[in-house]
Nucleic acid binder design. Structure first.
Lengths: 338, 338
DNA sequence: TATATTTGTTTAATCGATTAACCAAAAGTA
DNA sequence: TACTTTTGGTTAATCGATTAAACAAATATA
């Protein structure tokens, strides 16, 4: 009903004091008497006073907003990251503005502009697959606000990064498959230009070499890692004269697509071909056979990214550098590889 | 590097004109000469000017932000709703602040406070399961900003609602199961106090009556509809002397839990028991057997909720009433019921 | 020519909260 | 008593963009 929201001034006139006094009273300033504070808070409650964030943010030069850019909130990984990030940031008085890039470079640029426009105090991002041009991210830095990357990062930006050890994770997977007796292991990897996927590929190559296994070009495939492309790429692998006896897919979604095709073609998993995914999305444990995968510790990633941001708060000059926080990953062995 | 962002004043001093002229030039005011406009825009670009949203929002009394409250962004349903909502609202110059209640009433109240504090121009929400006390939602209304509910709504608030026909959906499901020859159909439903789940229950009861099927208390179960509770409740159903030959579960997640148990106990689906879920989450088509479900048209729900909000923009007095937009749902028949 | 209108811009107030600087009254101190 | 300090405020400027009102100069109209 009330069109006008109550302001400091309304409280001030009720009590016959200045708005400055009211402001200080609400912020528990030492120079305001207990009596006045009580009275102010009382009236504030009665009038259902809601401080105007825009005004205080404008004056203080801090919006207390943190911008978040993710490819999609859809996956369990990102929604779990968000949840934990929110917990840490809310406690410190920050709110999160979530934006989705949908893996589109253009949308990501729009998102960055929007967030800067909203005067966020910092940006936490996981980059879209498409993103190669870093100029928009440079814009964030030149605005003097902290930028923290997680999962999909980029060394060249020289900012903080939180993620897992992708290179090492590939090693773990190959070790596991070798232990299960595999001799010919394929890898459906992501785009090489994306650092995390490149690291997984390097890990795959080095681990294969270490075990003196065949390292054929036809066994190493670059993919967009969608469910659809997972289907497509496994079909290509199945046409090979010398079929692999195991496939390591760099994303659970693509691994799921691969599994669908294998089941449709009546190829026994894990008997004929063993399958490993990446990310430990909940569905990996729900499908038949359940899919072996890598747990990325999403909750800690969210928490750490948030805490890293908070480390920059109140610093009047933000001086960032390439600072990597690498978490250990964990192999969850399931039916698809045992 | 630049600590200070460029402001209207910076542009004004460069050109030796007033900030008012600059502001008007950037907003294409008719009273500013083409020459000046060009010069201003030129300098603005050179100085990498970013308008300060806080300042303009404060002055104009509109933040151009819309608050969104969802139980979780996690499910495909909500993330799809968000995506389409965003598309409509971005086009109209609005940005979305997404908050998650995690099904907690307390968190939801916090979220409402936060959004009001951020001076959002409207709130679009799907209520938490726990929410019974509507006073915080009343607070939104008394602040004079539009409130649009979707999926999980509540008639008593007398605001706009976008959702599907839950009552009718239950009928469709029962029709389908009857057509498959089922004679004893159980329903694992949600909390009765939540309107949508109550409607599904009413639909179930009426449809069962219509077909003269047994309507036993033991066949109608109230559940939190999590995966875990789905497991728990199906186990209860399996202990019955007279087992059902079909189970209609009011959520895909709980249906999945039920399916897991049935498979573990080696009960053939659909041969011994037919299973139907609700929501058409992507995994329903991925598990074995694939789960029959109801498509809720999430994209249209997002779009319509956003458009409904936009209908209130620029109205200086927001006068809302119970205005329901009910979409037709669609049964997707899959292996679990055929 | 004298007056009215249009054009292009400036001035100054405003949104609401915060805060540096100032001040009067009360209390303390030598 | 005379001076200092503390207490509890007030005043006024400020954040940056917008806008109603004012105004000078240019142009049109009678």
């Amino acid at each position: 009903m009330n069109k006008k929201r109550t302001t400091l001034k309304d409280i001030a006139t009720v009590l016959g004091i200045s708005t400055a006094a009211v402001s200080k009273a609400l912020n528990d300033d030492a120079r305001i008497s207990i009596k006045t504070k009580k009275a102010v808070k009382q009236v504030a409650k009665e009038l259902n006073y809601q401080p105007n964030h825009l005004a205080s943010a404008l004056r203080k030069g801090k919006s207390k907003l943190v911008g978040l850019i993710v490819p999609r909130t859809n996956s369990n990984f990102f929604s779990s990251v968000v949840e934990n990030m929110e917990e840490v940031l809310n406690k410190a008085g920050y709110n999160i503005i979530i934006t989705q890039s949908n893996e589109s470079f253009e949308k990501e640029c729009d998102n960055i502009d929007t967030l800067l426009y909203l005067q966020v105090d910092g940006i936490i991002a996981s980059m879209a697959n498409e993103t190669v041009d870093l100029s928009f991210y440079e814009k964030i830095k030149s605005n003097g606000i902290p930028l923290i990357l997680f999962d999909r990062g980029e060394n060249d930006l020289n900012v903080d990064y939180v993620g897992i050890n992708d290179y090492e994770s590939s090693h773990m997977i190959i070790e596991h498959l070798v232990a299960q007796g595999c001799k010919r292991i394929a890898h459906i990897g992501g785009y090489r230009r994306t650092r995390i996927f490149n690291n997984r590929i390097r890990g795959y190559i080095d681990a294969i070499k270490k075990h003196n296994l065949p390292l054929d070009d036809e066994l190493l495939i670059e993919s967009s890692l969608t469910l659809e492309d997972g289907r497509h790429q496994i079909e290509k692998l199945l046409t090979l004269k010398d079929r692999p006896d195991a496939v390591y897919v760099a994303s659970d979604y693509a691994a799921l697509g691969a599994l669908q095709v294998l089941k449709e073609k009546n190829i026994k998993v894990p008997k004929e071909i063993k399958l490993v995914g990446f990310g430990n999305e909940p569905f990996t444990s729900l499908v038949t056979p359940s899919i072996t995968s890598i747990n990325q510790h999403s909750r800690q990633i969210g928490r750490l990214a948030a805490e890293t941001f908070l480390g920059y708060v109140d610093k009047d000059v933000v001086q960032q550098s390439l600072n990597k926080l690498i978490l250990d990953s964990e192999l969850i062995a399931r039916d698809s590889s045992k």
